[in-house]
Computed example of a mutant assay.
Amino acid sequence: MPHPAADLDAVDRSLLRTLQRDARTTVGTLAEQVALSPSPCWRRVRQLEQSGVIAGYHAQLDRHRVGYGVLGFVHLGLHNHTDETTAAFEREVQVLPQVLSCHNLSGRYDYQLEVVAQDLERFSEFVRSVVRNLPGVREISTSFSLKEVKRTTALPLD
């Protein structure tokens, strides 16, 4: 995979830092912050979007305020690691809206899911009825977030 970071200059990094803080920042404000006129600033942002450096723009929701009181982590071990099993597992995980992230891991477990639920009962039901039935699942271990100390999607650009 290419490393586009080498192609990012100081202006690009400044634009990206600002957009990570507030993606609704206007082109005019961005241009002022990076000492460009609006047209070249807009072209830079478009280039960052087209190259895939900027993958999208999203609203960050407060999970508690939309009814998700539980954040849990589900560690999974698979029966086997064939291409077919892992592809089927990953395909099914992709469509589960309760799963915020899925990581293929090194170490004891094969995957870690970050899962939200309204409450412990619904989390438990999700794990028992959905996660347990995902392709290849052999072993499940769960843990819960007692307190979220930090959450960010902003990448360090220094």
Rank of each mutant, 00 (worst) to 15 (best):
L36K: 08
R17E: 14
V93L: 04
A87D: 10
V115E: 06
L78E: 01
Q50A: 12
N133H: 07
Y68Q: 03
M1R: 15
C102W: 05
R43P: 01
L100D: 14
F123Q: 01
G77D: 12
Q112P: 02
G52R: 10
T29R: 08
S101L: 11
P40R: 09
F123P: 00
V66L: 11
S145D: 15
M1A: 15
F73H: 08
V115T: 07
R138D: 13
L155E: 13
M1P: 14
K147V: 07
A55P: 03
A10I: 14
G52W: 06
T86I: 10
V74P: 06
H58D: 02
A5R: 14
Q47N: 07
H103P: 00
T142F: 15
Q50I: 01
R44F: 06
N104A: 09
P40M: 06
Q60N: 06
F144T: 11
E121M: 02
V99Y: 03
T26D: 08
P156C: 13
L146E: 12
H75Q: 14
D62T: 04
R122N: 10
A117F: 00
H75L: 15
Y68R: 05
S106L: 11
D83P: 10
E84F: 08
E125R: 03
P2Y: 08
S39W: 04
E148S: 10
V11C: 12
T152G: 09
F144V: 06
H79V: 00
P135T: 05
R21K: 14
Q50G: 10
G52K: 11
A88G: 04
A23L: 10
C102I: 04
D158K: 10
E92L: 11
R132N: 00
R13H: 11
Q60S: 09
L100Q: 15
Q50E: 12
A23D: 05
R108K: 11
L36Y: 09
